[in-house]
Amino acid sequence: MQKSLAKHFPLFVAPTLIAFLISFLIPFVMGVYLSFTEFTTVVDAKWVGIDNYVKAFTANTDFINALWFTVKFAVVSVVSINFFAFITAVILTRGIRGTNFFRTVFFMPNLIGGIVLGYIWQIIINGYLYKYQVTLTYDAKYGFWGLVILMNWQLIGYMMVIYIAGIQNIPNDLIDAAKVDGAGPLQIIRHIIIPSVMPAITICLFLTLTNSFRLFDQNLALTNGAPARKTAMLALDIYNTFYGRNNWEGVGQAKAVIFFVLVATIAYLQLKLTRSKEVEG
C-alpha cells in the first residue's frame, strides 16, 4: 500500500499542484516582478527598480489615507463583529425556542455577494439620510459607519456559527460542575466558555481581520471612495491606481505587494498571539 501510494504520488498531487501553479504561484511571482517595472499590459514591461514603491508613498497621500482608513475600519469591525457574534452564539446555545430558525437567518447575509450587499445598504442608508437632506457621500464618517454596519451584518452570522460549534464542544459536566461550585453566568462565560473556545476565537479573529483588510466589493458598491476618496480602503485604492491613470499600473502593483506583506504580517502575528492562549486539548 505504502509503495503504490509513493508510486502514484505525482498522479494525486499533480492536478492540485498545476492548478495552484497556474492560478496562484505564477501570478504571484509575476506580480512581484511587475511591481518593479513600468508596463501597460502584463506581457511587455520595462524595469524601473524601486521607483514604483517610492511613488506609491510620495506622489500623493491617497495610499496613506487609505491605509489609515483601513486600519481604523479593521479595528472597529473586528471588535464589534466578534463581540456580537459571540453574544448571539451564547444566546443561541441555550436551547431557546426557534434556535435553528435564528441561526439560519443570521447566517444568511453571508450568502449574498458583496456588490449586491453594498448597493442594498446604499439604498437603505441613503433612504434614511434623505430625511436629513444628506447622502452617504456627504461626509466620510457616514461612509465609515455604513461600511462597519454592512460588514457586521454580513459577518456576524458566519462567526456566530463558528462560535456555536466551539461552545457546543464544551462538555456539559464542566459547566454543571462550575454551577455546583456556585459560579454565576458571567463567571461561566469568562472562566469556562472563553478559554474553551479559544481555537474558535483564533479562527474568527483571523477571518474578520483579513476580511476587513481586504474588503473591496462592499467598499466599491457602497461609497466607491466618495467623498474625495476619503472612504477608499486599500484594495480600492490599489484598483484605482492600477486602472485609473496612464502608466501607473506598476505603482498599483507595488501597492499590492506592500498590501500583501502587510496583511500577511498582521495575520501571522495575530495567529501566533491567539494560538499561544489556546488551552491544550
Binding site: N126, Y130, Q133, V134, T135, L136, T137, Y138, A226, P227
Partner: peptide, 8 residues
C-alpha cells in the same frame, strides 16, 4: 433635487 442629495 436639493443640493446635498446630488451625491447619489
Amino acid at each position: 433635487t436639493p443640493k446635498n442629495l446630488l451625491g447619489s
